[in-house]
Design a protein around this nucleic acid. Structure first.
Lengths: 242, 242
DNA sequence: CGAACTATTGACACCCCTCAAGACCCGTGG
DNA sequence: CCACGGGTCTTGAGGGGTGTCAATAGTTCG
C-alpha cells in the first residue's frame, strides 16, 4: 500500500487547517503509512491500548460499545475523514470498538510521535481539542435524540445528520448516497429493536420521506424530512478560524 | 466575593496537574475572579457565545439541551470541580445550557486569555484535550445506557456513577451524599417519564438498593446495586501521567 | 391560608419489544 | 445444476414496559 498519499488527511481534513510547510514536513515523519482492511475487520477493541491512531481515507466503519449483558450500542458511523483513536490517544484505553463495515483504507499514525508533534506545534493542538469538542457536541445531540424522540423521529434525525455529512463529503449524487450498514446497526445506534426499525423505515419509504435500501439512502426533500421529524435544519458545526 | 481563593481549581482540580510555579503565576492573570449565583440562575444559554469560562467551586448545577418541540434532555449534572464552557471556548457557540440548581460559586476565566495561556504552555493544552476526552467518554456511556438499558438499569447506572463521583469528591459520608435535584431532572437525563421514574425509585427504595429523598442519596452496598443493574463496577477514568 | 412546586399513586392506553415464520439473496459444496 | 446454510429484510401476532392523564398529599413561601 505504498503511495504518494497526496490526499493524506493531515493536509486536507478538518483536523488540520492552514498548515505551514514546516508543519507539513514534520507530519511526514510520524505518518507510518497506509493500511487497508477488509469489511468486517475489527480495527480497535474496547479496553485495548493501541499505539496507533488512524484517519479514515475511504470506506466506512462503525463505532460501538458492548454492554455487560452483551447488548451493543452503536455510538457513531465512521465516514471518510474521521479520526479514529483519539480516546486511546488521550486516555490510556479505548472505551469503544471500531469495525470496518466496508473495505477501508486508513492513514496510520504513531501515538507517541503525535504528542511530540503537538508539543512542538501548539497551534495544532488546538485542532485536536476542537475535534474532541465536535465529538462531544455530536454525542450530546445523539443522547438527546435517543432520550427524548420517538422511533420515527430518531430515524429521521439520524438520516438528516447522515445526509448532511454525506453532502459535505461529496457522497451525495442525485439525492442518493451510499450507506452500507444493516438495519440492525441503525437500530443499535438509536436504541430501537430491529423489527420496529424495519417497520418504521417502511413507513418512511411509503410516505416518500426517505428510502434506504440496497446500501443506498435516498432523500428527495431534506427540508420536508426534517420538518416531519421536528428538527430544524441547522448546518453542521464548522471549524472557527482564529 | 473577593477572596484569596486558595483552592482555586486551577491549582488542584483534574484539569491542571503538576503545574510549575511559573505557570501558576501566569494563571493568576487570566483568572478574572469568583462568581456566586443563586439556585435556579441560568449560567450559560444554548446558542450563546459567552466570553467567559467557569469552573465550579461549590454547589451543583445542571447541563441540558432543549429540543425543538420544547422537550428537555439533561446531559449531565455539574459537580464541584467541573469545567463549564469548554464547548463555547472551542466552537463559537454553546450547544447546551447550564443552570445552577443550588447556590453556586464559580471561578471565572477569560476565554481569550485562556487560549494564549495554552499557546505558551503546550503541556497544559493536553490537559484540556484530556478533559474533552473524558466528557466524550462519559457521554458515550450515557448514550449506551439510555439506548440499551431498562428504566431500572438506567437509574442504577446513574446512581452508581453519581455515587462514584461523589466519593471522589469527598461528598459521601455514612453512605450518604447530597443530590439536590428533582425527580424530573433525573427523568430528563435518562429519557424516562417523571411518573415512571418515581415508581422505579420507590421500587429501589423498597428493595433496599438505593434511597433518594430529601436531596440525599443513600447507597449502602454499591457493589450489590451495580450487580442488580448489570454493570461492572469499574473505577472512573483517571488522568494518565506522562 | 392559599399558591406553587414536588412527590406519590392508580388507571388506562399505546408504543415498542419479543417471538415466530417466511422471503430473498448469496456463498459453498455435493 | 441444485441443495443447503447463513445472513438480512420483512411481516404478523401478542405482550409488557413505559408514557399519559388525573387526583391527592406534603412542603415551602409569601
Amino acid at each position: 500500500m505504498s503511495t504518494k498519499c497526496k490526499n493524506c488527511p493531515l493536509r486536507q481534513h478538518a483536523l488540520f487547517t492552514k498548515m505551514t510547510s514546516d508543519e507539513v514536513r514534520f507530519t511526514q515523519k510520524f505518518k507510518k503509512g497506509e493500511l487497508t482492511i477488509d469489511a468486517g475487520t475489527p480495527l480497535m477493541m474496547e479496553g485495548s491500548n493501541s499505539p496507533q491512531l488512524y484517519t479514515a481515507l475511504s470506506g466506512m466503519g462503525i463505532r460501538y460499545k458492548t454492554l455487560e449483558d452483551g447488548k451493543r450500542h452503536v455510538v457513531n458511523f465512521v465516514f471518510p475523514g474521521d479520526f479514529i483513536g483519539l480516546q486511546a490517544g488521550v486516555m490510556n484505553e479505548m472505551y469503544h470498538s471500531v469495525d470496518a463495515v466496508t473495505r477501508m483504507t486508513l492513514c496510520v499514525f504513531d501515538r507517541k510521535e503525535l504528542w511530540s508533534f503537538f508539543r512542538n506545534h501548539p497551534e495544532r493542538a488546538f485542532d485536536l481539542t476542537w475535534l474532541a469538542a465536535i465529538e462531544e457536541h455530536f454525542l450530546g445531540e445523539a443522547l438527546a435524540a435517543v432520550g427524548q424522540r420517538s422511533a420515527t423521529e430518531r430515524i429521521i434525525w439520524a438520516f438528516v445528520r447522515i445526509f448532511q455529512r454525506g453532502t459535505e463529503l461529496g457522497l451525495v449524487d442525485q439525492n442518493r448516497m451510499p450507506l452500507p450498514y444493516r438495519q440492525q446497526d441503525l437500530a443499535d445506534a438509536l436504541g430501537l429493536s430491529l423489527v420496529h426499525t424495519n417497520k418504521t423505515l417502511a413507513r418512511l419509504r411509503d410516505r416518500q420521506l426517505a428510502a434506504w435500501s440496497d446500501g443506498y439512502l435516498t432523500i428527495n426533500d431534506l427540508g420536508r424530512l426534517a420538518q416531519e421529524g421536528d428538527m430544524t435544519l441547522e448546518p453542521l458545526p464548522t471549524r472557527p478560524l482564529f
